[in-house]
Design a protein around this nucleic acid. Structure first.
Length: 561
RNA sequence: CGGGGCGUAGCGCAGUCCGGUAGCGCACACGGUUCGGGACCGUGGGGUCGAAGGUUCAAAUCCUUUCGCCCCGACCA
């Protein structure tokens, strides 16, 4: 392409409402423009990048036997009603009616429709397994779109769905997808981690997420550098660093007006690890007392897995239920209330509320002074120990760039997607679903590869292989050489962007660095007169002067074409 | 949905407190000089000051309502 004819509206300054690096650079370099909150236009450069990513996705999906199809994004309500998600999902689903007042929604994902198709067409175990995928637009009325294309209301997703006769078949497809995803991210030049994740309302019991480390990410993962344990903090297990057992004997201590942990800790001159934090929750089945160590926080989602839906009790409820003010509640002596304690409290001797106004108790031990059900209910933190091997965990901020779910028969049962097995028994199809967001891959690639001057694309997903930069468009030799090289490069199927604009050298250099094409071929007047051309690496900024006749071979070697 | 911030030319901003002819830089157009890291000089075009209502002789500025966008949180199938 000729730069002069391509629509590349670069910006010297980014709009002030952009904050994430990838957002700023995509705007400045002319890859995207915003239409409204969470709605983005992909300009020619941006669309080329998505095209490159999608090509990789297709290759790797095809390679594991998945078949590309295309599904509507407008869905009749009935299908979603049959799985219960029409009602289960709240404001995040775009809903509308047709002219006959029939309910529809815009597809947030395609489990329902894929399963509907399978229910109509799959009859026999002989028809299975099948894996279908599409690269298709999804719509979600996000509560808070943010960070450019990282969280939008309309986005493209590669989603695939596997259909198997049994768990074993699902395991195989799950593994194939995980392996394909590894190849995809590697080819896209991303640093990534596979972590255990919370399946949430997708149903099924087993899922993994693929995460690209970046400060712009919304999720956090706990990682063990020693044994490789990796999990979303939403479910990560950890052991808080142990503390020396003070072996106090139980005694009540007067703590007048000291209610918060900080106040008591300062008053008694012991650090928060020596305290038990008692939090009263109201679950659907009544009050529950949750206990974590003083320096820890209760993990709502972990707790929810034990006691179901719940909310923190209000101050008046605490007094009604426990008969003591919130600041002085403790774990002891509750016979009618369910007590859930974090595992780390099994060891050690602690200070806790005495269930008596203005008093705490020092020297209480688990299974002697109080009793509880033991679960990991604290939020994993940097520096905690790995529950598998004991090494120190790190917690990192990440962008979710893909996920894989074992759905089981949740959708096939609901939509009666069944088959007859070899014995003539009717069985629900065993399903999996697998998603990747190409725009998030692009954004994550930028987040992981940029410098103060702009983007540094991994070769595989750069909008062009090389940028050809003739510096002086008024010099006949420069222009002629550029045109000839341009043709030769294209003949070799190398994607080349030629900056043929009547611009000063500085402008061309700045734009080239901003746009981030990995290789720059610079045609300067003086060098040309000596038969030399510069080949510059965007990342290292190293420049090699090459004889004119060697340019093609050098570029071919660089791009692998 | 809760908390905070911002809407003035394509972009970045000043002006708003204290009402009185709407400004600056970049970008854009034309002319000239320049030409290897976002040039310089000159000339010029472009804004219902997010929208509606109100107060006032007079509103970008004060009041009310409303819409939009961003950030933090909740949510995230």
């Amino acid at each position: 392409m000729r730069f002069s004819r391509m629509f590349i509206p670069t910006l010297r300054a980014a709009p002030s409402d952009a904050e994430a690096v990838s957002h700023i650079l995509m705007l400045r370099a002319g890859y995207i423009r915003q239409l409204a909150a969470g709605l983005y236009i992909f300009l020619p450069l941006g669309w080329r990048v998505l095209g490159k990513i999608n090509a990789i996705l297709k290759e790797e999906m095809d390679a594991i036997g998945a078949q590309e199809i295309s599904m509507p994004i407008l869905h009749p309500a009935e299908v979603w009603q049959q799985t219960g998600r029409w009602d289960a999902i709240g404001g995040e689903m775009f809903r509308l009616k047709d002219r006959n007042d029939r309910d529809f929604c815009l597809g947030m994902t395609h489990e329902e429709i894929m399963t509907w198709l399978a229910s109509r067409e799959i009859r026999s175990y002989r028809d299975l397994p099948q894996t279908w995928y599409q690269i298709q637009t999804k719509l979600r009325d996000e509560a808070r779109p943010k960070s450019g294309v990282l969280r939008t209301r309309e986005f493209i997703m590669k989603d695939s769905y596997s259909f198997d006769v049994d768990e074993q078949g699902l395991d195989n497809n799950y593994r194939l997808h995980a392996e394909a995803y590894h190849r995809i991210y590697n080819r896209c030049g991303l640093r990534f981690i596979q972590v255990e994740s919370d399946p949430g309302m997708m149903g099924g019991g087993y899922s993994h997420e693929f995460m690209a480390p970046s400060p712009a990410g919304e999720d956090q993962v706990a990682l063990c550098p020693k044994c490789g344990y990796a999990a979303n903090v939403e479910l990560a297990c950890s052991a808080p660093v142990g503390i020396a057992d003070k072996a106090w004997q139980p005694e009540e201590v007067h703590t007048p007006e000291k209610r918060t942990l900080q106040e008591v800790s300062r008053f008694l001159k012991f650090t928060p690890e020596y305290f038990i934090k008692s939090v009263l929750m109201i679950s659907e089945k009544g009050p529950v007392l949750a206990l974590v160590r003083g320096d820890q926080e209760v993990h709502e989602k972990k707790l929810a897995r034990v006691i179901g839906g719940h909310r923190p009790a209000q101050k008046s409820e605490v007094k009604d239920i426990l008969g003591v003010e919130a600041g002085f509640i403790g774990p002891m002596g509750h016979e009618n209330i369910r007590v859930i304690a974090d595992t780390c409290l099994k060891e050690g001797t602690y200070i806790a509320g005495a269930n008596r106004q203005h008093y705490h108790v020092k020297g209480i031990k688990a299974d002697r002074d109080f009793f509880a059900e033991w679960h990991d209910i604290h939020i994993a933190r940097q520096g905690d120990s790995c529950t598998a091997c004991g090494a120190e965990l790190t917690v990192e901020r990440v962008i979710e760039i893909g996920n894989i779910f074992k759905l089981g028969t949740k959708y096939s049962s609901a939509l009666r997607a069944v088959f007859l097995d070899e014995s003539g028994n009717e069985k629900p199809i065993v399903m999996g679903s697998y998603g990747i967001g190409p725009a998030r891959i692009a954004a994550a690639a930028i987040e992981q590869n940029n410098d103060k001057d702009g983007i540094i694309w991994p070769r595989s997903i750069a909008p062009f292989d090389v940028e050809l930069i003739p510096l002086n468009m008024n010099d006949t030799m420069t222009v002629e050489t550029a045109d000839r090289l341009y043709q030769e490069l294209m003949n070799d199927r190398i994607d080349v962007l030629m900056d043929d604009r009547q611009e000063r050298a500085g402008v061309k250099f700045k734009d080239a660095d901003l746009i981030g094409i990995p290789t720059q071929i610079i045609l300067g007047e003086k060098n040309l007169r000596e038969g030399l051309i510069e080949i510059k690496d965007r990342k290292t900024r190293e420049t090699a002067k090459v004889g004119m006749e060697k340019v093609l071979a050098t570029v071919r070697a660089l791009t692998g074409k």
